[in-house]
Design a protein around this nucleic acid. Sequence first.
DNA 1: CACAGCCATGCGTTCATGGCATGCTTGCGG
DNA 2: CCGCAAGCATGCCATGAACGCATGGCTGTG
Lengths: 307, 307
Amino acid sequence: MLAAVSWVSWRTFLAVCRCGSLSAAALELGYTQSAVSRQVAALEREAGVALLHRQARGVEPTAAGIAFLRHATVAVNEADRALRSARSPDPVRRLAIGATPSLATWVAPAAVRRFLAADPGWGWTLVPGLTRDLHARVADGELDVALVTDAPPGLPHDDRVRSIPLGADAMVVVVAADHPLAGRRRIRIEELAEEVWAEDNDGSRALLRRHAARAGVDPKIDLDAADLAGKVALAATGHAVALVPGITLATLRPDVVGIPLVDAPVRGLHALVPIGGDHDGLARFVGILEDLLGEVTTPGDLGGRTR
Amino acid sequence: MLAAVSWVSWRTFLAVCRCGSLSAAALELGYTQSAVSRQVAALEREAGVALLHRQARGVEPTAAGIAFLRHATVAVNEADRALRSARSPDPVRRLAIGATPSLATWVAPAAVRRFLAADPGWGWTLVPGLTRDLHARVADGELDVALVTDAPPGLPHDDRVRSIPLGADAMVVVVAADHPLAGRRRIRIEELAEEVWAEDNDGSRALLRRHAARAGVDPKIDLDAADLAGKVALAATGHAVALVPGITLATLRPDVVGIPLVDAPVRGLHALVPIGGDHDGLARFVGILEDLLGEVTTPGDLGGRTR
DNA sequence: CACAGCCATGCGTTCATGGCATGCTTGCGG
DNA sequence: CCGCAAGCATGCCATGAACGCATGGCTGTG
């Protein structure tokens, strides 16, 4: 019958989920119920899991089915887009950017902003993710570039990916705006020996411990936060002080102050780009990143409040 | 032969582009060269365009092929992800957010920031796009929410999409930081009658004209910029003044100042959400948007420099 | 000018897919 | 308690899609 469209069964599955029953989907798609049944069965065989929960009155996606459905929707739509854009080549050039959470909220948008200022007419997408995930996506050619930190160290190696150092980001101490030390321009870790620290994850905790240990201090890490913003919230309310990436200064809430640390721990920032996947837009974007981070990681600040 | 994995010819095409020749791809995939040739031919038949440029020394994607390749890569990877996440349902909940360019650089990340502060453990993606495109993606269930403006008016209607008003955004005048009027807290359009205006697109130009006409002023729109950032750049260098969405204030460069306009033109801000696609995370995110934009669009500012 | 490398295509075979008819499960109502 | 209706699964058969093999055509090179 029709060869028209591949991944027929994927579309069928979407229709089934939309309709709530195999028969209804069959009617909508012009198949018989049995064909639909088989297509779904084939899909389930391929996934190795039941995607639908069969009931007397139709079907309902299982947990696996729901997870599958979400990605499948994107995949099928993207496939349509692929065919459409082949027929009428999309003049809009597109930059797919990945970034770790701390870089996704400020650095990436700021770089995009500059990039577009010099040459609009580019589309872009921002995908936040963890270093490992982003690395894989760059290797697969799905992302044009990923912004990552090297902490935790040990970027996986892949000869399809090149890592471009973008400079280093010094960690900064964050305290409440009305904290006695808030007016300081620089500070030593020893002066914070009596403070309570908030931390959110083991990597960050280890970084703080290591840095403090060099100064012979054992920091009191007594408050746990769920994430970076949580740490800052604890600092803002005066419950603790926190160590955050300097790169996030510009996005800090107004009721906290960031204070540069003397001899601060630094994390390397890298752009991951696909080898051989170069194009002029990407090169320019990386250049902008280098400039941007050059400005930021040198003594000046970036509009953040360091007082 | 078992169709173990669907998307066969799509995967083949990716391999061909990676290898640079049909034979090499055939070798890599364990097919014969003829099978690969046919698969590509089928794909081209489906697309209706030649995707490869046949040469004596292998093949090379055509313009259409390159456009196709970009989307196909994403589609195939997403399909893999669908299968993987079906096998081990992904505990990470994910929020796919779309936003128009002006809302993508600040509002969306800021809202995400708050969202994650209250409940981390969510993944997210930001897709910038134009209102029409975003609307379609929400209807297709590909996006959980899209942030759009109603100017130009006439959002397409679709009974799979609900529009939630988020408030209004007043346009603001931007002048160089050393401009004589830079210290003003508010300003009337009449006072700017002698200024040169920079504009970047017809919609924005019309908005300015209409607003000025109400005050009996005919603005001198003498400078063309490529986009919003370009307009602001012209303002920063003292060549012109510009009208920008108030929502972008926080992202303005430091060498310009935004001045609220008396009786300013406003554009409605809306969140588009899929009907029936509700979940608690989405509801909470929309709530955050309402709060955030409530704060911003009321007299206070958002950390931007209005002096 | 012959040759090597690479792609397209005709032919025969295999097997995946869809339709048809039937059987099974479940929930509902007499 | 049982028959019935709605809805999914499956055995059987026909069609044709897709693969391998072998061949032919094209192009750049020695």
